[in-house]
Design a protein around this nucleic acid. Structure first.
Length: 260
DNA sequence: ATGACGGAAGTTTTCCGA
């Protein structure tokens, strides 16, 4: 099985790139973030014609998430039960596994940016992370096979940061954010990317400004966390920079996990 | 210290992202 997550920064702009990427990279479930469109504008037919099912949860201008999948999702939930939120940031669904017996619960998330430590948006990010964790804990108790993937907007450590000295304690790199990320892992999850040897300075996002990608000035903030039940099946996890060759790329690259 | 790039809304400028 293959799982992927990709913040595409406007599905309206990036739909052709998503379809091309799916044609070249068949996956079982692709989580998308930052659709930046309302539900009525979601291009469901384009995915159907490409042979994929889709579940989506959009919003005007900002946010918006979707799960694109080979087989249909069941038990789809939008946002975090128990955490009131007027932003569309989370979508989850359950999918059959190849053995036809087991299922896997997949949660796709667009974590809050947080803007700046000390800001109202940072406080919202912390509250959101606590709400997410309480819900994921409950989900894991009923789903031993669970994938939590998306744009986390948090780095794990200095290895995820192009200039850890200059960016120390700045947004995505604060100890408070990293505490919440470690607390998610402590539920019994694993950073799939670090289960494998990786090139140094591996990033999933680069600032559009100042030639960030060309100079590899980036952050690793898009993650795939997998439960203990799935860890023995993991065989590869990579960041795919190939969509950056497009004329108008997203500022994020897809992260792809292979099980089996 | 600031802006840089890109998208959206919506009108020449602002908000926001990371």
């Amino acid at each position: 099985m293959k799982f992927a997550t990709w913040n595409i920064n406007s599905l309206t702009v990036r739909l052709p790139q998503v379809l091309e990427w799916l044609a070249n990279n068949p996956v079982d479930v692709l989580a998308l973030q930052e659709l930046k469109l309302t539900d009525d504008k979601f291009p469901a037919n384009a995915f159907t014609q490409a042979g994929y099912c889709a579940q989506w949860f959009g919003q005007k201008t900002y946010n918006g998430v979707a799960l694109i999948s080979r087989s249909p999702a069941i038990d789809v939930v939008k946002n975090i039960p128990g955490f009131a939120d007027d932003m569309s940031r989370v979508i989850s669904g359950t999918f059959a596994m190849p053995d036809g017996q087991q299922t896997v619960r997949v949660i796709g998330g667009y974590f809050p940016n947080g803007q700046e430590p000390g800001s109202d948006k940072f406080e919202y990010k912390m509250n959101w992370l606590k709400g997410l964790r309480d819900w994921v804990r409950a989900e894991m108790s009923s789903h031993p096979n669970l994938v939590l993937m998306g744009d986390y907007n948090i780095t794990f450590d200095d290895d995820d940061v192009w200039d850890p000295v200059a960016l120390k304690d700045s947004i995505h790199c604060t100890e408070e954010e990293r505490y919440h990320l470690r607390a998610l892992v402590a539920l019994g999850l694993h950073d799939a990317f670090r289960l494998f040897e990786q090139p140094p300075k591996s990033f999933s996002w680069w600032d559009y400004r100042d030639a960030g990608f060309r100079r590899n000035r980036g952050l690793r903030i898009d993650h795939i966390l997998i439960s203990n039940g799935l860890k023995p099946l993991a065989s590869a996890c990579v960041i795919d920079k190939s969509p950056r060759k497009n004329e108008r790329p997203s500022d994020h690259a897809p992260v792809v996990l292979t099980l089996g």
